[in-house]
Design a protein around this nucleic acid. Structure first.
Length: 592
RNA sequence: GCGCCCGUAGCUCAGCUGGAUAGAGUACUUGGCUACGAACCAAGGGGUCGGGCGUUCGAAUCGCUCCGGGCGCGCCA
């Protein structure tokens, strides 16, 4: 059976605490893994915390706790150190056993039940399907996919969802952009608005339309431009010029709708389907899969948007002003009230988002997580406010913000904007640096930290690249096991007692920490901790490997028991590297 | 102006609910392949943790304030 030393030590401390200071028996007991090996396997600051509470000397308290600490066969040494730490050193046999536990559990090693099998919805990426995904979306995708894996590993029943904004004005703009390009292909070249979608992919979709349906969607230029205000001079960038350009686009869309009738929907559907398929394949190639693609338009079709606004009205949180319906979000801490239904009767994006989130609650998830770009942070209070107004428990919704990713190549920054067509696509990034390096670099940094993505480093195939450093450790072990040629499954039965070198024990200690890393990384939505851990584990392994032989050789013979024990140890290392990298979506080649 | 995020080695970043001598990588200097994979290892220099004040036995971590950077403040999505 597996022994959980941490749990046992907490129990021992709890009993000692009960006899030393019964009045403070409720004091929480924390154990940390000291950085210094000399400080043992676990350390507790209980005495120092208690000292504050009881007004006594920390070292003295630590000594009294030590005296009352029940004996355990698993603890080799307990001592008071520093300002009043109680340091535990485990018995070596117990420290070594982790290798066996890993080999027995295999791919499940590190898996926990912390989530209790509760349903969790993780929504991420959710980029408008109006163009290729760019490197900013890539970060959200990599972070979200890793987080989803991590939470599932930590015992949550995770659903991965992509919210498809297929209902709004942006889709109309994309459709009209493609149509204008199509008209140009038919010989009717009209001024292409600067705020329409500029990318080459729009031209490609226009070519598809023309190839499939010929000139079926051709309309007279005069009708297309009827009542469309002229575009202001390109140099002008004042508020009036901007408004004029938006108006230009809106009238174009209205005319397209009128002139094309049912065909407008066909074009609309086509560009949507194209972009969605493109994004989906892009993400799949990136190792990012979704369980649900949730349509915004479906919310409207099912009447859920209208229904949500009605519910807010019934709850008395909506008022009319200037012909529009406003949600009184200031009641819930927002800085100003927000429009849910415009003067022209059209619901705002916010209204459908309320319906969307209400629907998430109705689907019975114990926890909801949204991954948003950090530029949306101002949006949080109104969404949570609306949920509260609907009587829902907004605390169940966590919003994880992801900061911008900026690409650097030789010190040069790359600008990103879908509209202008000047952006670096995720696809281009993947092709340049490879999927593994891409996934790893994205999650190597805390999500709420700005990311400087160093292209030169990511694509370097040298020792500088941390991805290869880890993969190399895995491949090296695989190579040794191949060289050995025995049955890896039998290593779980190996006698581990020959392991006693400090490097071997350091590896054991590192391996034993994996479960804790998973637990805190999942709790903090911080997959980067897994990346750092795997890097550290690989470093421990490389140091071990360089100084100690694994396989016996005629001129450097090893006792058979020692060879077997070391094989078991490195097989365990390989397994944990693998388990960690799987969570991050990075492959572990057997050779490279 | 208000709100959110951030400021740690030359550069890019970790630092778990406040803990022990602030750590990696990279760059630089130096050493190590007739070895189970040198995409590796070992050693070295490099820090006012943006500044200040406070709370505490103890602050990179918590609070206040100032400086600096990013983002957001629409009847856009």
């Amino acid at each position: 059976m597996a022994i959980d030393p941490k749990h046992e030590l907490v129990g021992l401390l709890r009993r000692a605490l009960g006899s030393v200071a019964p009045d403070a028996a409720d004091e929480p007991i924390h154990l940390e893994r000291p950085r210094e090996a000399a400080h043992g396997d676990f350390a507790s600051n209980l005495a120092m915390r208690l000292a504050r509470r009881l007004g006594k000397n920390p070292r003295e308290l630590a000594a009294r706790l030590l005296a009352e600490l029940p004996l355990s066969p698993h603890v080799r040494k307990v001592e008071v150190a520093g300002a009043g730490f109680i340091n535990f050193t485990l018995d070596d046999s117990l420290r070594r056993e982790v290798a066996r536990q890993i080999l027995v559990a295999g791919r499940d090693y590190g898996r926990s039940q912390a989530g209790g099998g509760q349903k969790l919805l993780l929504e991420f990426v959710s980029a408008n399907p109006t163009g290729p995904l760019h490197v900013g979306h890539g970060r959200g995708a990599a972070y979200g996919a890793s987080l989803a894996n991590l939470l599932a590993f930590a015992g949550w029943d995770v659903t991965r969802e992509y919210y498809v904004n297929d209902a709004g004005r942006q889709m109309d703009i994309l459709a009209v952009s493609a149509w204008l390009r199509y008209l140009a292909l038919c010989g009717k070249t009209l001024a292409f608005p600067p705020n329409a979608y500029q990318g080459d992919y729009v031209r490609r979709m226009a070519e598809q339309l023309r190839g499939a349906r010929g000139e079926r969607y051709l309309r007279p230029a005069a009708a297309v431009l009827a009542e469309v205000p002229a575009l202001p001079d390109a140099a002008r960038n004042d508020a009036e010029a901007k408004a004029l350009r938006e108006r230009h686009l809106d009238v174009l869309i209205a005319n397209a709708r009128k002139l094309l009738g049912a065909d407008w929907q066909v074009i609309h559907q086509h560009v949507l389907a194209e972009q969605l398929a493109d994004g989906r394949s892009d993400l799949e190639e990136f190792g990012v899969a979704f369980d649900v693609w949730f349509s915004e338009k479906a919310l409207f079709d099912m009447g859920l948007v209208r229904r949500s606004v009605e519910r807010l009205e019934e709850a008395g949180h909506v008022y009319l002003q200037d012909g529009a319906k406003w949600f009184r979000s200031t009641t819930f801490g927002d800085e100003k009230d927000r429009v849910v239904q415009r003067e022209n009767g059209i619901y705002t994006y916010f209204a459908s988002d309320i319906a969307y989130h209400a629907n998430k609650f109705e689907r019975g998830f114990a926890r909801l997580i949204n991954i948003w770009g950090a530029d949306h942070h101002g949006y949080i209070p109104r969404v949570k406010g609306a949920l509260k107004a609907l009587g829902l428990d907004a605390e169940r919704l966590d919003i994880a913000l992801v900061q911008f990713a900026v690409l650097y190549r030789g010190g040069q920054k790359a600008a990103m904007s879908t509209r202008s067509g000047e952006f670096v696509t995720l696809r281009a990034l993947r092709e340049e640096v490879g999927g593994d390096a891409c996934r790893f670099f994205y999650v190597l940094q805390k999500a709420d930290q700005h990311l400087d993505f160093d292209l030169d480093l990511a694509q370097s195939q040298t020792s500088k690249n941390p991805v290869y450093y880890i993969q190399y450790a895995h491949a090296r072990i695989a190579s040794v096991l191949r060289e050995w040629g025995g049955d890896v499954a039998e290593l779980a039965g190996a006698d581990l007692s020959p392991l006693e070198d400090p490097r071997e024990m350091a590896l054991c200690a590192r391996l034993a920490a994996f479960a804790d890393v998973i637990e805190t990384a999942a709790a903090e939505y911080a997959p980067h901790q897994v990346a750092f851990y795997v890097k550290d584990l690989a470093a421990d392994f490389h140091a071990f490997y360089h100084h100690l032989r694994i396989l016996s050789r005629p001129d450097a013979p090893l006792a058979p028991e020692l060879q077997l024990a070391r094989l078991a140890l490195v097989a365990a290392v390989r397994q944990v590297i693998y388990n960690g990298m799987v969570l991050l979506g990075v492959s572990c080649p057997e050779s490279m």
